[in-house]
Design a protein around this nucleic acid. Structure first.
Lengths: 194, 194
DNA sequence: GACCTAGGTTAGCGCTCGATAACCACGCGT
DNA sequence: ACGCGTGGTTATCGAGCGCTAACCTAGGTC
């Protein structure tokens, strides 16, 4: 529901918990992190979590939905802003946004495609609906810029997500260098999908 | 220790268990699958597992090591076979092999980069050692074919793994079409890494 | 035909986890 | 001055898990 940056408001406790939990989940997986681990990492202990989330599953759900909403909302905004500069610029904007997100929030990226299966059915459906819209944004940009048919554009989009999302596993170059590398590889890969 | 295809011998029970477990782990994650789930999927019940593996962790370890050994062994063989045809052919052979593996064994690919964190320390070390050798194989081929420096080649290799490994998450085209798409995208992405 | 071994069975132990209950302290509006 | 909501605490419960123990075959060997 709430976006990651609620404009100027200081981060609420829920958001703090989500951030800390994301790091732990990324390291050890959702089922590998206990409520007590979470409390310890927060400086509180154990069941304090339940003052902010109805369950451990609800925490995961909120985290995953937040990520998907951020990706979609910012992606939509940036694509629209670049649209007047042509299809290539729009695609470049999407790529730049996804690369930026993956490099600055590796934990979120990791959790998103690692622990989605652990989420409750309802949350999983919400996330997939948002993800589908995000993919459609890419598919539109790819077909416009490269001229592929839709099915290939869809598979190519997923492949490029995999390419960009690989950063958490890779011994990193420094940030800007890595961002440039990923952007160039993504553009080239997509142009080869035609 | 034993490769996936022990030539002509029928699959031993251990290998059957590993295959069945891989499917379940890929769906629900290592911690999301209980010993009893495993037994049920095997047609036996529960603790029968311990006649074949010392622990649930040992099963995961054997699975992960098997995957890494297969990738490295076959990758080494194919790269050597193609080497006489030049650097581009060697790189193409590596790409073709990885694509083939990812398309025919999606569950193994998923577990490999999802549940490695759940493995015991010793197994994790073994797997990482094998993975590192596999990456070095790619780095050598990439630097020879494209002319990048080593750090960029290493990051590019990881990115291409992510690209190819994304197939389990993608609504699939038919096999050959998907394989071709991935190969083209991988080649283009690597040539853009220079 | 006795015997071992490979591969199963069920019962149950001990521990960890998620979740709840009951209680407590501070800050703030009236 | 007081009441109450907010966000914490500890104790505890119940379930599910990994794993072990003890026992039971069938098949092959001498």
């Amino acid at each position: 529901m709430t976006a990651v940056n609620e404009s100027t408001s200081p981060p609420t406790r829920r958001q703090q918990i989500i951030q800390v939990a994301a790091e732990l989940f990324a390291e050890r997986g959702f089922h590998g992190v206990s409520i007590y681990d979470l409390g310890a990492a927060m400086g509180t202990s154990g069941p304090a979590l339940y003052k902010h989330f109805a369950s451990k599953d609800a925490l995961l759900g909120a985290m995953l939905v937040d990520i998907s909403e951020t990706l979609l909302a910012e992606g939509t905004a940036r694509a629209r802003a670049a649209r007047s500069d042509g299809p290539d610029a729009e695609l470049a904007a999407l790529i730049a946004w996804h690369v930026e997100f993956a490099l600055t929030r590796p934990a979120l990226i990791t959790v998103q495609f690692r622990d989605l299966a652990s989420a409750a059915e309802a949350d999983r459906r919400s996330v997939r609906r948002l993800q589908r819209r995000y993919v459609e944004l890419w598919v539109a940009a790819i077909t416009a810029a490269v001229g592929t048919d839709e099915p290939h554009a869809r598979s190519a989009a997923h492949a490029v997500f995999g390419l960009i999302n690989s950063t958490p596993h890779s011994a990193r170059l420094d940030g800007d260098d890595m961002a440039g590398l990923l952007r160039r590889m993504a553009v080239a890969a997509l142009h080869a999908a035609g």
